[in-house]
Nucleic acid binder design. Structure first.
Length: 235
DNA sequence: GCGACAG
DNA sequence: ATCTTGTCGC
C-alpha cells in the first residue's frame, strides 16, 4: 500500500479535519460492527504493532512484527514512517496512529491471523479503541493490550502472574486486568474484534515470556521507541 | 462546574 | 508518546 493511501482505502478512517464531534460519531457507528465472537481456529501467525514518534512528533513511526504463534519466534518486522497529521486527543488515538499502522501491517511478508495492538480494544468510552478500530477496518481478529486504564474500574488484583479480574464500565465487562508477571503493573486487555472477553486475556498471557508485555507488542515496542539490541536497521 | 484522559 | 542518568528494589 502506497505510504499515504490509508484514508482513500478505508472510508472508516477519514483524514483528520479537526471535527472532534463527527469523529466520535463515527466511532459509535463502527463500534456496532465489532464482533466479540471467537474465530474458532487457532492463529498460526500473530502480529504485534506499536507506534512511536520522531522529530518532536512530526513523524509517526509504526512498527509491525510477525511472529510464529507456536514458538513466538519473529518471522518479519516492518517500520513505516509517515508525517504526523493529527494531535493526540484522548479517545481519538486510532485516527492519529492507524494510518501508519496500516502501512506497516500491509508490508509484512505474510498476513497475520491475529493482531495484538498497543492500546485498548473495546475498553474505550465509545467501545472503539485502536485495536477495535483496526479490527473493523481490516476484518482481522485483534486484541488491545494497554499499559493503563482509559475507562472502567476493577477490584484488587493478586500479585502473582496469571491473576486476572474483570474491568467494568457502566455495569458492563469491557476487558480484563491481567498480571502478566509477578509484582509488576497489570496489563489492561480487551477484545478488539473477533475475539471474546474470555479468550483475550488467555491469549495474551500465553504470549508472555518473562516480560510485562507479551512478545508481539514487546518486540514492536522495542523497535518503535527504544534503541535496544537489534534495533538498528543499518551498520 | 470539576477532574480524568490509551499513546 | 517524548525529553533523560543513575538508582532503588526484587
Amino acid at each position: 500500500m502506497p505510504a499515504a493511501d490509508a484514508h482513500a482505502r478505508y472510508p472508516e478512517l477519514p483524514p483528520w479535519d479537526g471535527d472532534v464531534a463527527s469523529a466520535r460519531a463515527l466511532q459509535v457507528e463502527l463500534a456496532a460492527r465489532v464482533s466479540l465472537q471467537d474465530t474458532g481456529s487457532e492463529p498460526r501467525r500473530i502480529a504485534g504493532v506499536d507506534v512511536g514518534f520522531e522529530e518532536g512528533g512530526a513523524i509517526t513511526r509504526a512498527v509491525a512484527v510477525l511472529l510464529d504463534a507456536a514458538t513466538l519466534d519473529p518471522l518479519d518486522e516492518v517500520v513505516a514512517r509517515l508525517p504526523t497529521r493529527m494531535p493526540y486527543i484522548p479517545g481519538l488515538l486510532s485516527f492519529r496512529e492507524l494510518p501508519a499502522v496500516l502501512v506497516a501491517l500491509g508490508r509484512l511478508a505474510a498476513s497475520p491471523d491475529l493482531v495484538l495492538v498497543d492500546g485498548h480494544g473495546i475498553a474505550h468510552p465509545r467501545g472503539l479503541g485502536i485495536a477495535a478500530h483496526l479490527g473493523v477496518l481490516t476484518g482481522l481478529p485483534t486484541i488491545g493490550v494497554a499499559k493503563s486504564i482509559l475507562v472502567g474500574s476493577h477490584d484488587e488484583l493478586p500479585a502473582q502472574r496469571g491473576a486476572c479480574v474483570p474491568l467494568r464500565h457502566r455495569g458492563r465487562v469491557i476487558g480484563s486486568v491481567l498480571r502478566s508477571k509477578d509484582k509488576v503493573r497489570p496489563l489492561i486487555v480487551s477484545p478488539g474484534h473477533r475475539v471474546s472477553l474470555v479468550r483475550a486475556p488467555q491469549i495474551v498471557l500465553a504470549c508472555c515470556r518473562g516480560y510485562r508485555l507479551p512478545e508481539p507488542t514487546r518486540l514492536a515496542d522495542r523497535l518503535a521507541s527504544r534503541r535496544g539490541p537489534g534495533a538498528c536497521s543499518d551498520e
